[in-house]
Nucleic acid binder design. Structure first.
Lengths: 191, 191
DNA sequence: CATTAATGAGTGAACGTTCATTCTTATGTG
DNA sequence: CACATAAGAATGAACGTTCACTCATTAATG
């Protein structure tokens, strides 16, 4: 058993518990039990609960960012690049609903607020890509002349509710529907 | 002092605390202190914390619903009715940021999930209005031919992030901007 | 055998809720 | 009107529970 095995087990257990019970539905004791370790063991790997939570967030963001960059069509027209981002983000979360639920919990908590500031300042990984699209789009008069801080909510706001509804089973996001949705998102911001 | 004075004080205190600290940042003792009553007094008016929380939600929803219905232009074209709804909702929340924060907390909690089901089934007050718009719009081929459960997120999803950013001071939603935003929301769903 | 890892009972703080008691207001009586 | 009595409202200390975190002890490792 490698040194990081238990660390991973703890993170996985925390992810699952927090994703579907929230931070307060995930006591350290329960995380430990689910991970098959003792409570105290968690504190070998994470200074405290907050560190565990932030670390988990960091790791998920990393994964998502990597996925979006993977096949990103840098050379294609703006619209295509934009559609790609939205489509792949939706697909990622459909494949990894726990990740979505976790990010949602995180975002909607005291932890999330500082991150939020970063996002708008374009610090985070794949938001540079997005901000480039917005900037170029406005320059080339392809997009509406709106602040980037408005374009982002317009384009990505729907995805949050859609994902939630998908996970709850109110909608089923299959490929044809995803195609229509991504195009609708484009319509929101295109001139 | 009327019988309902303390009840109101408690609700107001709970609203303020919960809106900016979340449910877990609002212990009954603190709510009581802020309301200027003893802890035990709360339990004269509310069976327990959950009842208080739900009651608060009910009351806010009532107010919002009333506001949206107030000047609703029933006789005007679809587009105009739709723009009205979005614009007034934004305005309401800009005027009452605590209400927005509270509803967000509520929505993003175990309590919120049952409500969510109601919303999609069209039980809640002003959603009948909205569903009518969607239904008519599809019939008249004004709107995209998408499930109502998709039209709703597309049209209203942006508002949540926009409101959050507005409250955090990242955007300032003034009237010209609101006009552009509501029209962008319409562009998302119009054919 | 020395060092590191893992354990889980224990600790104290925080929380929602209760309830014996006190204070306030309303009602009855002469 | 003065006073006694009853009813209702308000109080806050106390209770039981939950939780994050600690630490003395045990197990594993090389």
């Amino acid at each position: 058993m490698k040194i990081s095995d238990k660390r991973n087990d703890v993170m996985q257990a925390a992810l699952e518990l927090i994703a579907d019970q929230g931070f307060h539905g995930a006591p350290m004791a329960e995380i430990a039990e689910k991970a098959g370790v003792a409570t105290g063991t968690i504190y070998r790997y994470f200074e405290n609960k907050e560190v565990l939570i932030r670390e988990l967030h960091r790791e998920l963001e990393e994964k998502i960012s990597a996925t979006l960059r993977e096949g990103y069509p840098v050379e294609r027209p703006l619209r295509e690049r934009f559609l790609y981002l939205i489509r792949e983000l939706l697909r990622y979360f459909i494949t990894n609903p726990l990740h979505f639920r976790y990010m949602e919990q995180y975002f909607n908590s005291p932890y999330g607020i500082s991150m939020h500031r970063d996002r708008l300042l374009g610090k985070s990984g794949n938001h540079d890509i997005l901000m480039d699209i917005f900037e170029l789009g406005i320059q080339q008069q392809v997009l509406k002349e709106l602040p980037k801080a408005v374009l982002f909510p317009l384009a990505f706001g729907p995805l949050i509710i859609l994902m939630r509804d998908h996970i709850l089973g109110f909608v089923i996001l299959d490929d044809p529907l995803i195609k229509q949705i991504t195009e609708a998102c484009w319509d929101t911001i295109k001139r």
